[in-house]
Amino acid sequence: MSEVILSVKNLSVEYRVEEGIVKAVNDVSFDVKSGETLGLVGETGAGKTTIALSIMGLLPVPPAVVTQGEILFEGENILAANEKYLRTLRGNKISMIFQDPMSALNPSTYVGDQISEVIMLHNKVSKDKAREMAEECLEMVGIPKNRYAEYPHKFSGGMKQRVIIAIALACNPNLLIADEPTTALDVTIQAQILELMEQLKEKKGTSNILITHDLGVIAKMCDRVAVIYAGEIVEMGTLRQVFKNTAHPYTKGLFDALPGNSLSGKRLKPIKGSMPDPTSLPENCKFANRCFNKSDKCDQRIKLVDIGDGHLVRCVSPLCSEGVKSH
């Protein structure tokens, strides 16, 4: 059994804005073990990026407020740590690939220099050596090295994303949080990037939290998966449990919505309705108003329960229990 390096316990985060209090993350708990890749999936606005930013200690405060919980990294509570400790943590042990590349890149510094700065921060090397290593990093993410001395706005969307990835990987982190790392990339470059992440995992035992709505990428990369809905974990288990023994109606809805799975010709099958207003979340099952499997029993607060072998589901009538194959 490998050790737990990150433990998120009962985390709740709100954004207090003019329109009201957005309950973005509600009582979320999960562990990440050393060398493991945990996938986070869920609807846009479900709270995935907020969870990631909490771990990085980078929540925008205000409007963000952590109302309860702990985040233990190597035993230390990140939420109670001071900024200095967080800064060394972020530079060395935890790094993040941000969903929005422009917010993470400096618009007035050459992309290559942004990579070599990070390299110099982590390795005792000369400027020239750092440049050489940064050029290698660029080539590793599929960008010719003669593009070193260009500004970010001259790069395509996917090229900016790849620069962010190169920077995050150059840190050699123990924990890599990747927030939609490959959404702007074509599948051949994506395959190359995913391979790099796997190499790092093999070489250094890096743990990964991979946030993506690409279920194919989850299938390829993750050991375990957590499905988030309206700020809550609604299903969590091993890749096999969640993909082959799908228990929560929302998770099932995600699979059914994929192009290629639609039986009705041109029209796709989205989950009907939309996520509840995060400023006034219902007390009962938050998915009930969209659920095809709804009954009177749903009209209560629903707990996350183990339906067998650690497969957790927040539903009173899960679509299956462990051992019974569905799908």
């Binding site: 999936v41 609807e43 846009t44 939609e180 709505h213 809805g253």
Partner: peptide, 13 residues
Amino acid sequence: SALDVSIQAQILN
């Protein structure tokens, strides 16, 4: 591409 699969399906429809 920034959308989850369900909303993606809604938008494509």
